[in-house]
Amino acid sequence: MGFTNEQLERYSRHIILKEVGIRGQKKLLQSKVLIIGTGGLGAPAAMFLAAAGVGTIGLVDFDVVELSNLQRQIIHLTKDVGKHKVESAKETIAEMNPDVNTVVYREWVNSSNITDIIKDKDYDFIIDGTDNFPAKFLINDACVLLNKPFSHAGIIRFQGQTMTYVPGKGPCYRCIFRNPPPPDAVPTCKQAGVIGVMGGVIGTIQATEAIKYILGTGDLLNGYLLTYDALNMEFRKIKLSHNGNCEICGENPVITELIDYQQVQCRTN
């Protein structure tokens, strides 16, 4: 695969990096990343991966753009309100970088479709940009069962967290967070809300992990949970261990099939 003059110019700031170079940029253009959720986390992740020249970007979301999304979901514009998020995101990516082939899946992930979606283009890396625990456990379990690396992230209020799973190299999400929060642990709505920039910071770190994984350079967040508290402006990198008794990636796994957990609803007073 040769580069056009336009591509040499577009990716010049990558190509001059010794960790990327022509070879690395070629890897990025040939790579395939699946982003599940095109909201606060998925929007910035998708935009930076598109700008970086990741050749195939898969987007999964069933949602429609709402006005209240625009405070943080920067891939969607005011004119996109009412559109399906995957279509709106695909249009933005097309305007950003014509090198990118965007594949859209207008659905919610569940136990019966996630394997087919990941296998559809045999994605190299998966980004969890979802906002709920059933989806987070489903993505973890599917990636463990399919031997796929993925980036987990969560954001709330002024806080964010992210970790990376690499098959056979450290803990999975379930090693740490064994099961979804108990159904009786219903949060109250005082916990609601998120500062718009949080998805930008954490989603961009997720994109960074995907890029580094594809390039095979640097150290990833496998075996660590990175937490960010924007109020104290504090990052912490917490070391985590693989759990030998993990129900899905431990020595004697008991979870061999995907599970559809029930969503815990917010209690309003």
């Binding site: 959720g37 909201g39 606060g40 986390l41 209240s68 999304n69 943080r72 979802t130 906002d131 709920n132 625990f133 987070k136 992230a153 969560g154 954001i155 709330i156 209020r157 806080q159 964010g160 967290q161 740490i176 967070f177 929060p181 949060p187 709505c189 916990q191 609601a192 809300g193 998120v194 949080m198 998805g199 949970l225 917490i238 969503q263 815990v264 609803q265 917010c266 309003t268």
Partner: peptide
């Protein structure tokens, strides 16, 4: 000791209802 928090997203589970 580390307290590791379950963190979902800013919306979804934590939806602000129209009443609020």
């Amino acid at each position: 000791v580390e307290f590791l928090y379950f963190m979902g997203g800013g919306s979804g589970v934590w939806v602000l209802q129209m009443s609020s």
